[in-house]
Write a protein that binds this DNA or RNA. Sequence first.
DNA 1: TCATACACACTACCATGGTAGTATGTCAAC
DNA 2: GTTGACATACTACCATGGTAGTGTGTATGA
Lengths: 225, 225
Amino acid sequence: MLEPVNNRMPISPQIYERLRRAITTLAMLPSEALSEQDLAQQLGVSRTPVREALIRLADEGLIDILPQRGSFVAPIRLSDVEEAQFIREALEVSVVQKLAGHGSSAFIAAGRVNLAQQAKAVAEGDRELFLELDEGFHRSLCEEAGLPKSWRVIQVVKLQMDRVRYLSLPEPGHLETLLAQHVAIFEAVETGEAKQAGARMAAHLREVLRTVQRLNVARPDLFGQ
Amino acid sequence: MLEPVNNRMPISPQIYERLRRAITTLAMLPSEALSEQDLAQQLGVSRTPVREALIRLADEGLIDILPQRGSFVAPIRLSDVEEAQFIREALEVSVVQKLAGHGSSAFIAAGRVNLAQQAKAVAEGDRELFLELDEGFHRSLCEEAGLPKSWRVIQVVKLQMDRVRYLSLPEPGHLETLLAQHVAIFEAVETGEAKQAGARMAAHLREVLRTVQRLNVARPDLFGQ
DNA sequence: TCATACACACTACCATGGTAGTATGTCAAC
DNA sequence: GTTGACATACTACCATGGTAGTGTGTATGA
């Protein structure tokens, strides 16, 4: 299930990355046990780098470490997801408000390319590709605004929403809605309408939250607390 | 300099806590080396928990780990401090806006006590106590708003400002200004004036940033990049 | 005098062994 | 059948040894 690591590069970050991906894509389900020993064997490494990866994941709220008992994939806590949404909204609204009217021409050009690719992905029904472009879209807003740390924060809190989004049910017209919102946000940023940009970003992120809440009804087994 | 740890409790978090405090209080200065080996000896523990603490501190941007070379207290990067301020402002403004008019009576009572203590600390010129009460004031806003994770984020980005604030020059009337701003924010929260509360919080946090910028001029040796 | 090769001391990094603490299953006593 | 004590099999946690990579000083060459 987990392929051996690349020995030419630092091991601990590699393990962190794989586990994070496994958790956010729900390859590892909530409350599943994560033994240092087992993981080390599966990956063909020692327990030390595994342990370090687990600690990082625990800091980010993706796993729960119970001392002398075990480590487990954290349940999806609706309160955590809702607060993640709150944090994202506060930050990203401020980001686009700051960015509005100040995007470089290179940024504008790259944004248009990204949105075109999003449209293509939607047309082809390629959900996974769309989510990837989605992530790139939001990241580029932070980077262009000169706010890399903000993106880091967003990325971490976003993890809580990601693993539900990943499996969220294919609803007709949903991707189209998200794409249209992206386009609207980008337009407001491009023309410098700061307030509009912020309002549209807020509406967009609330749409994402609704996805999660629907899933809470459809798959209560994934949720906890 | 560093006292031995308490063996009855998990060691790694203890070390993290001590190093964090040492860095934010400038007991350890920027660019100072932090050797796993040395720290382990000083603390009377092995290198493993020290290493885990260093990794956490690196994640939070307080130290820089250069593979196979060493770990060093991170310089104060003005760009980091400015972005920390941006993040705090975005979050805390949203927090007080959400909280305004919804504080419980217990919260209001506790807030008044805290502000009275702040006033006493200011009157007595007890800077350290004031900073502690200041932290408690901001934390209580997040907690009462039901946003513990937000406080965690704020706490982490705040670290960047803390170590400069800690040594920042005693300016006549500065603490009085901060206290007055706290009172004004609290009033707006109490009476439910959400917009006012947000605006006052923004002004307050910008005042804090100015402190840092003054210090950049006075003590350029602490800054880097 | 200056440039270059090289030995050495140092680092973070990973592997591995040992320990205290927790849960679980088994068996005896009631 | 129920409850309690106890052995056992896990766990995370810390200690320690070994290794590859990096910087620095030193000797050797021109």
